[in-house]
């Protein structure tokens, strides 16, 4: 159920990309899609009542790390994936915004219906 909500958020972002005419709004649509995917990945690793998969300083000595620890902790791999995805989306977002600004300098508008020199 919750997974389908992620997909709904993804679809909202896709709708925003496809329908909106302002360049900045299109970029925001892509950001929404990125967050939908990140949320999905985080939820994949979540466990109901899970604990953080971090081993503290004296946990080995006190016996806190045992089989039940690995049973109860959430999956850390999707979190690593999300971190990587965030870094990548940061890079592409910076590039996208700078292209938006450059386009605004050239055309004087953010409206994609008026930015139409390429045809055919």
């Amino acid at each position: 159920m919750l997974y389908s909500m992620c997909f709904l958020l993804f679809i909202i972002g896709l709708y925003c990309v496809l329908v909106k005419k302002n360049m900045v709004k299109i970029v925001l649509g892509i950001v929404i899609m990125e967050y939908a995917v990140n949320l999905f990945l985080i939820m994949l690793g979540y466990r109901l009542g899970g604990i953080a998969p971090i081993v503290g300083q004296n946990d080995y000595a006190s016996g806190a790390v045992d089989a039940s620890f690995t049973q109860a902790s959430v999956d850390p791999l999707p979190q690593a994936m999300v971190l990587t995805a965030i870094v990548i989306s940061l890079g592409s977002l910076a590039l996208m915004i700078s292209i938006c600004i450059r386009t605004y300098e050239r055309y004087g508008t953010f409206d994609i219906t008026q930015i139409r020199r390429l045809k055919g």
């Binding site: 892509i30 995917v37 590039l95 996208m96 938006c100 050239r106 139409r116």
Partner: peptide, 16 residues
């Protein structure tokens, strides 16, 4: 710039 923006939007959607 126009082509790059178009490519970037569709490319990002594909990546997602």
């Amino acid at each position: 710039l126009e082509a790059s923006f178009k490519y970037m939007v569709l490319g990002s959607v594909a990546s997602m």
